[in-house]
Structure formats: structure tokens, C-alpha cells
Design a protein around this nucleic acid. Structure first.
Lengths: 241, 241
DNA sequence: GGGTCTCATTGACCCACGTCAAGTTTCATG
DNA sequence: CATGAAACTTGACGTGGGTCAATGAGACCC
């Protein structure tokens, strides 16, 4: 029980990660746990890694596991039978996924970049949830924020123009990366992912970004590095204060 | 403490409602409370009524109260400055609204039909939440389902055609009203509400319903009563199994 | 350095849905 | 049962963004 013992997760895929040197230690659900809780929590977890493009799980599969993302980016999406895809969110370090009280996953999850995650058996996690009220409160808070973000996205998908969608998207990413106006933003995901997130086609995304560049609202360095010289101007385009 | 005492909520607007004769008793969050908890819970609540069209709260206002809808229908929506509106959901008896860990409401809420609700001061409700783990679990389950519904709606708004949107909408309502194929479905909300929920215009909603009627996929009685002769056929149109 | 593969950009054209403008139905009210 | 007023439907037409196709730009590999 010495305070200096690193809390270790079970070895998996050759990757052994100590919670106290985990990038997401202060971002993820485990941030609300005390030392003893963290010990039990991490004992229940295994770690996993995925390469970019690998699938974590598919919509409709039995929801036997839940995950906490510690590194990298994951996209969540739903498909229609003919292949039309809607990306419902991009998750980053600290985000939790797979929480399902139903029996199956309601979306698919795929790595955008290489990722690391903590992995929990569903039943084990639900037991921990009952033992740790902090944890449950934290998850409720997360669910509540995600819901607010989902509603914001419905407004975007239902009522905004292509230009407003792109402006909103860039601002959201810029705020998430906490950069100043002069620093560039890294998109990480492809045009195809952006299109499927914003309810557009890759051509429209490309054209709209080009137009914004021509107008001086943004500058592009390569395909995924974006400079936003004046966020306030972009906010005006985004149609939201 | 006699078991036969009806649990009463505080009088408000002249409406006095006993929990044990409340329509939503088995649907709402209070369904998970034991008798003692219910007593404390209802002691913390007042009841309220709204006429159709009245606003419960506006996006951006301080989120000082939370509500449990016991009767009628409420719509949630967000606005852009120029008046474009996106309805993010229709709530019915048993649904909870106003849960916000942030300081302000992130959407507006307005009565579609006359409604009754239980009303809680935010601080009081959050205290009850800490005392009643069942309640917290129930809210987490609700938030989780709402999130799944929101993702389904993103798929609809981002990727479905007008016809698919209407078919999906009608099926969702039919399932919510738990009617058989031969019984009609009551829409309750206006074409304008349907349009703003599905990311369309009222003209497109009207035209699409007319086309579906001409094709025999639905029959209309007045403007808000819809017969669905063959749900499976509508499911095919909706583009989802 | 050249070949190839993938992803992004750009152009030409098209169509589903939006806009604008009449009708028409419904329903509340005297 | 008239009389509005609001809600809904229908038609004619316009357009934002989709589709299809060609071109360009990296990245990777031999």
C-alpha cells in the first residue's frame, strides 16, 4: 500500500502502462478516484493499442466491454445499409466510450490515429460503478456534456449551411486544442471523415475550405494544418456567438 | 408513515397531484424510489402546468430548476440568431428535463400540448441525487438512451433523404405510442415542428407526406392522424431494418 | 528518380429540396 | 352558420450542394 508503488494495469499486447504516468490520468474518469479506488479500478482494466484505421467494435455487436481512451483519437459512426455513414463524434484522451445499458453497441468505433485505451469487462465495470459513487457522478456529467454536444451537432446538421458547418467545426477543434489565434490547428482526420461528420461530401468540404482560404478566413499548410488568423471572424461565419 | 397516506406534492397553480395517482408514476425517475425516498422526493417538488405554446425555459437562462414531465408533450429546441430552429427532441410523460451540470440551459423547452410537470430547485435536486444512488443510476440510464437517440437523429439529419426522414419519424412515433399496424398514430405537433425536427421545410414535409399517401404507404385522417397499413414497408423506406 | 497508390482539389453538370406564391382546409368565435 | 385566422397543401421555379470525372499532390517503395 506504499504511496510510491505505481499502479499498474494488466499487461496486454506487450504494453504496460502505469496510471501515474498516463497522459489521461487527470482527464479520464479515474481523475475522481482516490488512491485505493484507483488501485481496484486499474486492477480491473487491461490496456490495448490500435493502429490508425483499426476498428474497436462494430454497431450491433454485444457490448461486452467499455473503454477509456488514454491516447490518440477515435471516431464513432453509424451506417445505413447502402454505406452512407454519419460520424457522430471524435473522441480524444480522457474520453469514455462503450457505456451501454442495452445489450449491444449503438455505434461503431474506429481509430483515427494510433490509440491506447484502458479496457474493462462490462460486468466488472458495472460492479465498480456501484461501489464508487464518484465514478457514477462523473459518468453522468460526461453523458450530460455529450448530450449537449449532440444537440449542438443536430443544430449544425439540420440547419447550418456548408460554410457555417466548416466554420463551426474548425472553431470547435481550435477550442479543444486550446490554441491561441496565431497557432495552427491540426485536423488529424481525413476530408472524408470531416464530410461524414458534417453531413457533407468530401468535394463540398474541399471546395468550402478553398473558398475560406481565398477569403482569408483561414490558411492551410498541407491538408491538415489550419491557421485561423481571426477566430472572431470565423465565429461570425459560423453563425453563433 | 402509514402506507395508505397519499404522497402529495406542494400545491402550485391550484393543481394538487398525488404521486400514487400520477400518470407517470411508473415511467418517471420516481419509479426507482422506495416509499420513504418517494416521500422525501415529492416533498422537494412542486407541480406546474403549462398551456400549449407556453415556454418552460429558454436556452441560456440560468438552469435553476429541473423537471419531470408527468403529462403532455414538450419540445426542446435550439435557435440560430436569424431564427432558424432545430428541434432536438419531443418529450412525453416520464421524461426528465433540465439536467445541467453547467450553469445555464443549453436548449429551450416549450409545451406542444397542455402539460403537467414536477419541478425541483436545482440545488435541492442535486442533494437528493447524492442521497439516492438509485436515482443517479436511473438518470445515467436515461442520459445514455437519450444519447443513443441523439446519434440516431444525427444519422437522420446528416445522411437521410426527406422521404427516409419522414418514414423514420412516423415509425419512431408509432413505436413510442405502442400501436399495432391497424391503429392510427397521433402526431400532436404541427408541420412546422416536424420540419424543424427533421431538418426540412414545412412544404417538403407536406409534399412528402402527400406522396407517401398517394403511394399507399400511409393514410391521413385530418392533419395529425396517420394510419400505417404496413410498418415493414415503411421500414424499408426509412432505410433501416 | 520514377512508379504507384491514396487522398485532395477543381470543374461541369444536375437534382432534391428550398423559396415564393397561391389556394384550401380546419377550426375557433360571434 | 358566416367570418376570419392560422395551418396546411400544392404549384412553379431557383439554388446549394451532390455527382461524376479529371487533375494534382504527397507519401512510400523499389
Amino acid at each position: 500500500m506504499g504511496q510510491s508503488d505505481p499502479v499498474m494495469t494488466t499487461v496486454c499486447c506487450g504494453a504496460q502502462v502505469a496510471c501515474d504516468q498516463c497522459d489521461a490520468r487527470d482527464l479520464a474518469v479515474c481523475a475522481v478516484l482516490d488512491e485505493d479506488e484507483l488501485r481496484r479500478f486499474s486492477a480491473a482494466a487491461t490496456t490495448a493499442r490500435l493502429e490508425a484505421g483499426q476498428t474497436l467494435f462494430h454497431e450491433g455487436e454485444p457490448a461486452d466491454e467499455m473503454f477509456s481512451l488514454t491516447e490518440g483519437m477515435i471516431k464513432l459512426y453509424k451506417l445505413l445499409q447502402d454505406g452512407r455513414r454519419q460520424i457522430t463524434g471524435f473522441l480524444v484522451a480522457g474520453d469514455f466510450l462503450g457505456l451501454a445499458f442495452g445489450r449491444t453497441y449503438v455505434y461503431s468505433a474506429e481509430a483515427v490515429t494510433p490509440v491506447r485505451l484502458c479496457r474493462f469487462r462490462r460486468a466488472v465495470f458495472l460492479r465498480l460503478l456501484e461501489e464508487m459513487p464518484h465514478l457514477e457522478r462523473n459518468l453522468l456529467g460526461r453523458a450530460s456534456s455529450e448530450l449537449a454536444a449532440a444537440q449542438e451537432q443536430m443544430l449544425l446538421l439540420g440547419r447550418k449551411t456548408a460554410r457555417e458547418r466548416l466554420a463551426t467545426f474548425l472553431l470547435t477543434i481550435a477550442e479543444r486544442q486550446r490554441r491561441t489565434d496565431s497557432e495552427p490547428v491540426d485536423l488529424l482526420m481525413s476530408r472524408s471523415d470531416i464530410a461524414d461528420y458534417l453531413g457533407l461530401t468530401i468535394e463540398t468540404v474541399s471546395r468550402t475550405l478553398s473558398t475560406m482560404r481565398r477569403l482569408g478566413a483561414i490558411a492551410l499548410d498541407g491538408t491538415s494544418r489550419v491557421y485561423i488568423p481571426d477566430r472572431e471572424a470565423l465565429r461570425t461565419i459560423a453563425g453563433v456567438g
